[in-house]
Amino acid sequence: MSQVTRQKPDTVYFFGTCLIDLMFPQAGVSAVQLLQRAGIKVIYPPAQTCCGQPAWNSGYRDEARKVARAQIALFTKPIPIIIPSGSCAGMMKTHYPELFSGEADEAQALDVASRVYELTEFLVDVLNISLTDLGAPIEIAVHTSCSARREMGVADKIEQLLGQLQNVKVLEQAYKPECCGFGGTFAVKQPEISAAMVADKTMHLRNTGATQVISQDCGCLMNIGGAFDYQAKHENKKPLNTQHIAEFLWERTHG
């Protein structure tokens, strides 16, 4: 198995995630640009699709494994795999070993898992990136996904990155560590509970007075942002922007 050091690599893989591919491509482009600007060569295997998490979390393990197996085959070089999502990174890092336990290709799955980094984790811990804020003063709030916080344990990384931006003030919402209520298929299977959770989350975020909400996970952003939009359209509330951390960092730091 390859040994990943925390030394700055020349080349990394980028796993863009299906949600970013289809709904939030700008987050993926910005993440690649941030990596490239730091002098890293980025490889984006075009045959990549999805990490398999939706099926895994729904109990359809064979179906998840089939999709995961197709990804594992694409990331064979002994270089880090950067993922702009705590949730998908958590799937590959934590759950691939479970999903492939006892399978013929278990070793390959473990190897991939050992090379996975969530984007903000990589920017801070490996690249030790230094950012210069070129943007106008702004007050934002940060929502850290549960997977980034608890599964990957990287909640502090996004804060460290934002802390480098001089003109960005991070406001603290109440119940910050609480789930936004997305939870993948949870939002569909238990829509009433999910709705109650996102109602509270958006209320607490609004109450900070922030004009923008930043997260490292597009699943949460789709949930929170969708609720903000709905509230602006149907409840006469102030519109509020949501943005992925990569896009926010890139926009504020490229000249």
């Binding site: 970013i20 591919d21 491509p25 700008q26 060569k41 569909v188 829509p191 709705a195 609720a227």
Partner: peptide, 27 residues
Amino acid sequence: AWTSVRTAPAVADKTLHQQLKALGVDH
């Protein structure tokens, strides 16, 4: 149920696959 409290998510006009290909990111 999704749109009872949220707007429908929007599909991008170009996927990340398409955009990174156009930007010449290595395969």
